[in-house]
Each structure stands twice: as structure tokens, then as C-alpha cells.
Design a protein around this nucleic acid. Sequence first.
DNA 1: CTGGAACCTCAACCGGGCTTGAGGTCAAGC
DNA 2: GCTTGACCTCAAGCCCGGTTGAGGTTCCAG
Lengths: 127, 127
Amino acid sequence: MTPEITIGELAGRSGVPHSALRFYESQGLIHSRRTTGNQRRYVRATLRRVAFIRAAHHLGIPLARIGEVLALLPSDGAPTREFWERASQCWSADIESRIDRLERMRDRFTRCAGCGCLSFDGCALLG
Amino acid sequence: MTPEITIGELAGRSGVPHSALRFYESQGLIHSRRTTGNQRRYVRATLRRVAFIRAAHHLGIPLARIGEVLALLPSDGAPTREFWERASQCWSADIESRIDRLERMRDRFTRCAGCGCLSFDGCALLG
DNA sequence: CTGGAACCTCAACCGGGCTTGAGGTCAAGC
DNA sequence: GCTTGACCTCAAGCCCGGTTGAGGTTCCAG
């Protein structure tokens, strides 16, 4: 059987502070059962859920969007391989476009560095 | 002669709202003279200063850092070509590193999508 | 000279992603 | 049974880059 874990254990194993975990819960990203004494108990799958949240967040995905996709899982479910793949497809486009945007900026930046134009009409950087 | 401009004109020509301009001023990024009636008057060079601010901000540079480099200019000075070049050298490294970081993430993301691991010990995404 | 647009200040608020603190409760080891 | 540490809630605060609004003043055209 898989025993439940406390918030302290979850924090310790995931490296995410209690406060953040409670915040995630308040935002509906993770869920807990309460003991008779009103303390949180998490199923072990929550560890993977938190891992997923951190990984996605690390990629710059806002918590709200992470919550949207996590909502597609059962509340006690860990992200499966298929799930991760779908999220990946969904978000890799995001990452690509952010890379493109940065690269375009870099190019404009270096181009503009030479011209010193910075006019609101003509400068590509201001678009 | 080059007449001074009001905050309304500055807002209109730069496309930046009054409120943001006043905020920039409060943060020391731009400066104004006051009329006897306490209204702001900007030298025309401020237009370029604002352009510089927006361009740099567009690149993800925080206002505070933009302020640091603008502080090297006389308070009524527009960014010159040399100035822009120095800022460019200073910041293009920033942009490069941000691109690198994103690319590494993208790679990890696609690698991880297949494995579905997401373990705190082994998953590269969680570093 | 007057009306209305443009300007002024100051304070409060927004969203995102939390942290910190006060004040109180629960659970486990001795 | 008692102590101690882990836990609880709720509210407030922080940083960033501003926006919004109230209440008041200035400028300019007619």
C-alpha cells in the first residue's frame, strides 16, 4: 500500500516550500485529503504533480495555464507519459515562439546598434 | 530653436501613456522642467530617451537597470550612437544567455517528453 | 473672462507568485 | 500528561510596472 504524506514530507522531497504548496493548493493545482485534525495528507502521486508544476513553471508557463491542463487529470492522478506528451506538444510551440522572438530582438538590437536611429517611425526595435 | 513639449505631446508621440511617463520620471529615468504653474515640460531629446527605455524594456531589461545606464547621460541628453553601442554590448550578452537557457530547456523538454520520468532525482527539467 | 481640456498630486489598486507573521491546534515521544 | 515541533488559518506584505480615481489647478480659445 502507498501511505499518504504530510505537507512537510512533500515540501522536503520536492524542494518546494510549504507556503508555495499551500498556494498551489489554493489555486487548485494540487489537492489534499484532511485528517480529522484538519491536516493535509497527500497521495504520493502529488509528488509527480508538483514535479510537473515546477518543470512547466520553469519553462515560463504561468501557473494558471498549468492548472488548466492539470485539471484534465483526476485530482489524485500523477501526470502520465501520454499526458506529458500532450502538454509537450502544446507548450513546445510556446517555447519556440519565445526563442524566435528573442532572436529577432537580438538581431534588431545589433542592427540598430550601428544606426543609432531610435525614431518611433523607423526603428525596428520599437515595433 | 527647439521648443519644449508637454506630457500630452510626449505621450502622443511616444505612444506611452501619461501615467507610465510620470512613473518613469518618479523612477528617475526621465526628467522635466516645471512651468510656473507646476506643469512638466520636456526637452525634445526626452522622446529618444523614452524610445530607448521602451526598446530596452521590450528586450526584457528591468527598468532599474535601464535607469542605471541612462544615469550615465546628462539628464537632458538623448542616447547617442556611441551610448547605444555600449548599452548594446552590455545587454546583448544578457539576450544571448536567455536564448541559450530557453534552448536548453526546449531540448530537455523534448527529451523528457518521451521518458515521462519526472523524478526529482533524475529529471533534467527539474534542475 | 470664462469654460473645458489638459494638467497636477497622492493614494489605492491590479496580477503574479509567492513569503512572513500572528495566533492557535495537532500529534508523537518521553 | 506534557512538551515540542509540525501543522492550521487568515491577513498583510513584497516586487514589478504600472493603472485608476478623487479632488484640485492651469492653460488656452472663443
